[in-house]
Design a protein around this nucleic acid. Structure first.
Lengths: 105, 105
DNA sequence: TCCATCCTTCTAGAATTATGGAACAAGAAG
DNA sequence: CTTCTTGTTCCATAATTCTAGAAGGATGGA
């Protein structure tokens, strides 16, 4: 993963509201959750919610699929896994004998 | 971890420059790296660098220790581990039979 | 004491992000 | 065709963040 992509994803998650959205989707699992239900849960205006969801979709952390009128959002588990790997990649690369050492995740 | 703490840490990492700083410190391992060496590596003005480091220290992702005139920065590995755990905590909690299911990390 | 090194804080302007009302778009139901 | 539901986009404002020069503070050596 390129550093800019990683930063963009971390930034997307680095906002209380977006993190709440993402966590709700993680809890919902592969079934996902419609935008409307997220709105009920988080009690925020539709436009604000839509902006935040868009931000998460843009960086690939969330994907969407339409089911007639409702739009289902799902957490993209692979994306966050890649992010986690990136954070610990090359741990202690410049240090010899680190027990956590690894060159790539 | 409280959601606000998690969001603060993610936001801190969600900036290209700060992520570069953090990654450099991860690579440096437990030995850490002085502020000055980070400046050489990243080629950014001292004041800008200092602000970013401060942001990382404030949220607990980086710790510092003085060695006469030089200030050594170290990545706080536990902090990022807690963050990672938080991201995947309660995965699929509302879904039955998810292979990744877990209630806490 | 004087000076150099190393890093922080002050300050301020530029740029970006967050928020939410209002209007809009598209599908479904009557 | 009208209306309801569902969600997005437009727009403007408020708030925050980023950047970096300049000044300041602390430490160590000559």
């Amino acid at each position: 993963m390129k550093i800019d992509d990683a930063a963009a994803r971390l930034e997307a998650l680095g906002n209380r509201t977006r993190l709440q959205i993402y966590r709700a989707l993680v809890r919902a699992g592969h079934a996902g959750m419609p935008v409307g239900r997220l709105q009920d849960k988080l009690k925020i205006p539709a436009s604000t919610l839509s902006h935040h969801i868009k931000a998460l979709v843009l960086v690939g952390l969330v994907s969407q699929s339409r089911e007639s009128t409702t739009l289902i959002c799902r957490a993209n588990f692979d994306a966050v896994r890649g992010l986690v790997d990136f954070l610990v990649a090359e741990c202690c690369a410049e240090e010899t004998g680190c027990r956590d050492a690894q060159t790539a995740a």
